[in-house]
């Protein structure tokens, strides 16, 4: 509860982290000013790139008292404008899963090096980033919480697997240690509701702490305030679930 008397401020800036293979990777970070300590949340952008909307969400995390960090998963395909670099990444077959995991681990090391970090790290991703959040939850055991927002292809058929995405993230479910929150629109077809149900069943089967929230009248990407699919009521409710989840698992 705020009183309207507290000091509020944030710093948002680009930083360089050491990502997969020791590569330099750019990231956008936003953090509350003040001593902290603050929990960290890694924000994964969607396939169209390291874009304004993901940076805005990263700042939203700082507003709510988290260190948000948004690694540029297309950094190696640059330099270039985020949309141009995204086009190159897409044409090459998307971000390799191993590289994504390595970059997220780099972002975790960076967060842990900050004197105002409380030691807890969550991850959230949107669309392809939602799939990557689930992937990282299955491959990085020391994540403290994960949020998958409408990640498509968590379940993938054999013909959807590629050299860059060789494993369906659902097959990593048994390795997940972090509690998983899922946010989905019931009118979405990527993932379709049946895949959402199957993913939740897999989490239950392996005893993974989770909550899945499904919203009627919402489709894919219903948080996006600049697109026709924005659903303000459902988005507001879903954001409140995100804050509850991270507050529960990332704060001391």
């Amino acid at each position: 509860m705020t009183t309207g008397r507290e000091y509020e401020g944030m710093m948002a800036e680009t930083v360089r982290i050491t990502g997969d293979g020791g590569d330099e990777v750019g990231a956008y970070m936003a953090r509350p000013l003040g001593p902290g300590p603050h929990p960290g949340v890694i924000v994964l952008h969607h396939m169209p790139g390291w874009d304004d909307s993901t940076k805005e969400i990263t700042r939203k995390f700082a507003h709510y008292g988290y260190i948000g960090i948004d690694p540029n998963l297309h950094y190696r395909e640059g330099p270039g404008a985020p949309d141009d670099v995204a086009a190159v990444t897409r044409a090459a077959g998307g971000v390799p899963d191993d590289r994504c995991v390595g970059d997220v681990e780099g972002a975790m090391r960076y967060l842990r090096s900050l004197p105002y970090h409380n030691g807890k790290i969550g991850i959230i991703g949107f669309c392809s980033g939602g799939r990557q959040a689930y992937l990282c939850a299955g491959r990085i055991p020391d994540l403290d919480a994960a949020v998958d927002c409408w990640g498509g292809r968590v379940i993938a058929s054999a013909d959807e697997l590629t050299d860059r995405q060789p494993v369906a993230p659902i097959d990593l479910t048994l390795n997940i240690k972090a509690p998983v929150l899922g946010i989905f629109g019931n009118e979405d077809q990527s993932p379709p509701p049946a895949d959402v149900d199957a993913t939740e069943a897999e989490l239950k089967k392996h005893g993974i702490t989770h909550e899945f929230h499904r919203y009627d009248g919402a489709g894919h990407g219903f948080f996006a305030v600049d697109r026709p699919g924005y659903r303000p009521v459902q988005a507001t409710e879903a954001w409140s679930e995100v804050w509850k989840w991270f507050d529960r698992y990332l704060r001391d």
């Binding site: 396939m47 169209p48 874009d51 985020p82 897409r90 669309c127 894919h220 990407g221 996006a224 697109r227």
Partner: peptide, 15 residues
């Protein structure tokens, strides 16, 4: 030419 149907970067459309 690379052709796909997805979220645009700039156009105010869902896809």
């Amino acid at each position: 030419a690379n052709v796909y149907y997805d979220h645009p970067y700039n156009a105010p459309l869902d896809h």
